[in-house]
């Protein structure tokens, strides 16, 4: 087994560090080493998007990134969205529009929506669907997720 070493990175604005071996995946590092369990694992093969986070400004699937590759990176996870106890408008919109059920895929959906809206503040329905293509949901049929992202875009443009 390869040696472990410490790596540092910034998560949700806080500099954090922990031990990892080369094969440690970023998602396991975030969940198990840093203890931020809001980022979930749903498939292992880069399909489901439950583990989506923002890394250096873009959405990535953290199960398809090695922890070492994130050394020094600036990472935003679901735990970093709400500020001072106030929900982010995307979170508010998901709550108000019943944009989730079991909640397991939700952090990934919200992070993908965050990336989409950061780049395209007024997406069409088609653009929302395309933006969330990499995030599976088994509960909602996506209907209320799409509705939530539309509502979030409106909130954020105000």
């Amino acid at each position: 087994m390869a040696e472990k070493r410490r790596i540092k990175l910034t998560v949700n604005g806080v500099e954090m560090e922990g031990e990892a071996e080369p094969r440690t995946l970023l998602v396991h590092f975030i969940r198990d080493t840093l203890g931020l369990t809001g980022t979930h694992i749903g498939c292992d093969t880069g399909h489901c998007g439950c583990c989506t986070i923002i890394m250096n400004g873009v959405s990535v699937k953290s199960c398809m990134v090695l922890a070492y590759q994130a050394e020094g990176a600036d990472i935003l996870t679901i735990e970093g969205l709400a500020k001072d106890g106030k929900l982010h408008p995307i979170q508010e919109a998901f709550w108000e529009n019943h944009g989730l059920q079991c909640g397991y895929c939700t952090p990934g959906q919200i992070m993908s929506a965050y990336f989409l809206l950061s780049r395209n503040p007024k997406p069409t329905e088609e653009e929302i669907r395309r933006g969330l293509e990499g995030n599976y949901c088994r509960c909602t049929g996506y209907v209320n997720i799409i509705k939530s992202v539309k509502a979030a875009a409106e909130k954020m443009s105000k």
């Binding site: 980022t39 996870t77 679901i78 979170q91 909640g103 952090p107």
Partner: peptide, 8 residues
């Protein structure tokens, strides 16, 4: 939902 949308 508040706990589920905040990663808690």
């Amino acid at each position: 939902f508040p706990r589920l949308i905040t990663g808690q």
